[in-house]
Design a protein around this nucleic acid. Sequence first.
DNA 1: CCGGTCCTTATGCTCAGACATAATCTAGTC
DNA 2: GACTAGATTATGTCTGAGCATAAGGACCGG
Lengths: 231, 231
Amino acid sequence: MTQTTNFRAVIDHILARITKGPWGPGTLLPSEVDLAAEFRCSRSTMNRALREISEMGLIERKRKAGTRVRLTPLRAARFEMPIVRAEIEKTGASYRYALLRRDVIPAPDWLRAKMNLNPNIDVLHLICVHYANGDAFQLEDRWINLAALPYAETQDFSGTGPNEWLIATVPFSQVEVSFCAKPADALTVTHLNHRLGAPVFCVERATWWQTSAITVVTLSHASGYRMTTRY
Amino acid sequence: MTQTTNFRAVIDHILARITKGPWGPGTLLPSEVDLAAEFRCSRSTMNRALREISEMGLIERKRKAGTRVRLTPLRAARFEMPIVRAEIEKTGASYRYALLRRDVIPAPDWLRAKMNLNPNIDVLHLICVHYANGDAFQLEDRWINLAALPYAETQDFSGTGPNEWLIATVPFSQVEVSFCAKPADALTVTHLNHRLGAPVFCVERATWWQTSAITVVTLSHASGYRMTTRY
DNA sequence: CCGGTCCTTATGCTCAGACATAATCTAGTC
DNA sequence: GACTAGATTATGTCTGAGCATAAGGACCGG
């Protein structure tokens, strides 16, 4: 009488069978009803357990085909990407923000391609810096599609960053994030105290709302910055 | 008569209310039963919708206290971290692996501190390279705690990488991952064709199994590498 | 052998009801 | 006023039942 009945315990048992036990990569698991019977829980509970394991990336589920242990058990890491201000204030440091440049210009070619814009569309280009305890922490180089978000043109970004305004204003959307290491350019040398060509950790993020691009941003970080997570 | 009844639609409606609608940051939402009544769905469905929104990081839920919109609506990004071989083969490129060095040595001080090891513990130090279509793709600099994983010493890593062996061997565990940009050192210059000091995108991962550290690895990537995800 | 149609089956989702649990609020006691 | 014990309440989870949906497989005709 195992009497597991709770989905966390079921998850643990199944994980154990996948890693140590008989269910190696590629194995086809028994069906939900069979597993539920074995573990003495309802199918709903078993369904939730398997769903969560599938979200971890360890198994693949297909209707009719059944549940299969993935050949390459990838494990996904979650990175929380808070507003800069919150990230800085959480460490106890004081937060300060400065707008360096603000231009309304026709979108350059590379941006038109990336955002899939029509020719001669104006974009708002903002460059700002976020300081932690007076030290430059992050350089924000942002482009906003004014065709999709005309309000942005009249918004005053000298006090609060565009990030916070956008999060509060723009509805949910598709986001593409990528991380990379770039050599420091003139801008990061000036404002983040990098040496020219030194490694800079960059986050690039593009945000979409129903097929129209809203904003593209590059966040360059001060030297030594690292993004960490546990799971 | 909304007749939403499906949890995805419920999620969308609630997200809309949080971003555009009346539920700004800090708002206390109505209870599950009230919301279920309003959206004409069962409490189970509403529970699932709210649970998923909470996993996105937009709301916080506490028993009795209720459901509250977070003040800083952080959105979490998921990064899938597959085995290198799978990552390379998915692009259609051919995969090749080479072991450069293998040493059994007493753990250096920085590693002892990081892994919380006793003095005079031996560790296995491996350096290997993963090639895509003949070009160096990733340099793997790995340390394995032989006290926790004595089998590793007799394992032959000249044919398959330690990554694949570890994934298949070690049970589930706590993992800490961090991303950063580092200047290229002698090793990455030699094997990844970087110029000395050029930006290198690095992933550092430490794996634990019940309070004992198993392995610490630094993965350095070829120039131009970027890690991308959508959500 | 090839292709289409129907049947079967495993997962996906919803529901109503029930009990568990944590945290807040309240009332009572010293 | 301070502290404690119990009532209250919103979320957390489990159950068993049912229908929906995708997709593999069998059957059949050409």
